[in-house]
Amino acid sequence: MVFLHFVRSLLFRPLTPLRIVGCGVALSALFVCASAALAGAGAQEMGNLPQVPATPSLRPYWHVFAAYAIAIALIGGWAFSIARRLRDVEDRLTQQGE
């Protein structure tokens, strides 16, 4: 719901169901095509790879998840910060226009 409001406030006014479905289909198609193409291209390399050793502890998993979470949080934080500042400056412009 919050994400839809965010998208709406940024671009689509009004946000029609057709547009939502269109965006969803387009993104899904992009995701599937890119995944299939990359998986096919990389599959040939897989045969020559060394065997994966057993991981000695679970600690590295937390480091990997934390790193990916930090990346998502900082990019998302920047996006929401821009959206908030855009809304503020638009409110200011609206007040100046009145």
């Binding site: 993104l27 995701f31 890119a34 990359l38 990389g42 065997q51 994966v52 590295p60 998993y61």
Partner: peptide, 28 residues
């Protein structure tokens, strides 16, 4: 941004489920 976010999902899928694990350092 939407293309980038879709790509981010693809990147996470590649990173966690597709790419091979480096033999010396492991999962990290």
């Amino acid at each position: 941004t939407l293309i980038g976010l879709a790509g981010l999902l693809l990147l996470f899928w590649l990173s966690f489920f597709w790419v091979s694990t480096e033999i010396r350092q492991g999962i990290v």
